[in-house]
Write a protein that binds this DNA or RNA. Sequence first.
DNA 1: GGTATTTGACCTCA
DNA 2: TGAGGTCAAATACC
Length: 345
Amino acid sequence: MVPQLALYLILNGCKLARDLEARLVDLGNQPETLSKSCDDIINIFTAAKQGLNNAHPQDPYLFTHGQPSQQEWLRYGVITPAMDMVQSRTSNTSMGGEIQAMDASGSGNASSSSSQRSHRSSRKGGEEKFTIRGPAPQMGNTDVPPEDNYTWRKYGQKEILGSRYPRAYYRCTHQKTYNCPAKKQVQRLDNDFNTFEVTYFGQHTCHMSSTAPSIAPPPPLVQDQMIMAQAMVSQPTLPPSSSSSVAPLGTWLSMEFSLGSGSGSSSGGRRGGDAGASSSSTAAAGGRATTGSRYGRDVVEYLAVADMADAMFNSGSSSNNSMDFIFPHVDDKWEAGGGGGDQDN
DNA sequence: GGTATTTGACCTCA
DNA sequence: TGAGGTCAAATACC
C-alpha cells in the first residue's frame, strides 16, 4: 500500500517537471532559475521516496485522521522544522482548530534582519504567529501573495529597514464586522524576489460568529492540512544544506488548488478588470493588490478546497482513490497554461 | 454609494 | 530615538 501523500508528492513532482519542460526554452538563459526548479522537483521526489520507504504497511493512509502524531511524522520520515512547526500548531489546535502558537520565522534562512525583529503586536502581548514561505506566482501578476481562502484587507505598507522590499499589512476583512483579529504581513525575501514570506497573527473568529457569513472560510483544520501539504513540499527531509527553507515552485500548490477552475480571486473581486494586472502596492501602476476575494467566490473555492483536503487526508477506507478527485482539478489548472495570468494571488 | 488600496502621518515600544 | 505597526484621508473601481 502506498501512502496517499507520497502519491500526491509524486504526481506533483511530475507536474512540476512537465511545467519545467514547458518553460525550458524561456528559462534557457536563466541557469539559476533552472537550478532552483530542479531542486524543487528533486525535493518533492525525495520527500515522496522517503515517505514510501518509511510507510508502514498497516498504515497506508497516513493522514487519515487529519492530525498525524509526531510518531507518524517521524515514521513517514518527513519530520523537519516545518513539520515540527505544523505539528506544534496542530497539537495546539483546539476543537475549533484555531491557531494557538507558532513562530517559524527563525527556522528558515535569515531573510532579513528586520524580519527577526519582534513585531509590534508581539511586543505588546506576545501575540502568537506563524510564518510560511512560498514563491510568488511565476506567471501573470507576481506581486500578489498567495490566496489562503480568507479575505484580507490591506491597511498599510512599510519600507522595512534592511529589507529591499516593502512589507504589506493585511487584516481580516471582517475585523470590524465580526471583531476578527486575524492579521497577516506579506514580504518578499531580500535574497529571493520570487519568494513571499507571509506571517499570520491572531485567530480568525469571523467564521465562528453566529452572524458570520453562512459559508465560512475554511476551518483551520483544513488550513492545517493545507500547510502540512505545503510543508511536505517545501520542507522535505533534505540536508539543511539547502539553506533556503523555501520551495519555490511547489510550495503554494495547495494554495493554487484553492483557486479551483476559476480564474482566481481577482475575477470575482471588485477589480475583475484588473485581473492579472493587479499589482503590489509598490508597483503603483494603477493596479491594486487584490488579496481577498468576495464570498461568492470563496464559497466555491472553499468547498472545493475542503473537499480536496478531505479527499486527500480523510479518504481512509474508501477504495475509490480520491486522488482521482483531486488531480483533475490540478490538471485543469495546469492545462490552463499556468493560468497564472488571470490569477490574482 | 460601498468597498477597496494607497500613502503620509501618527503612535507604540525596545 | 528610531523602526515597525496602524490610522485615516484621498482616491479608485464597480
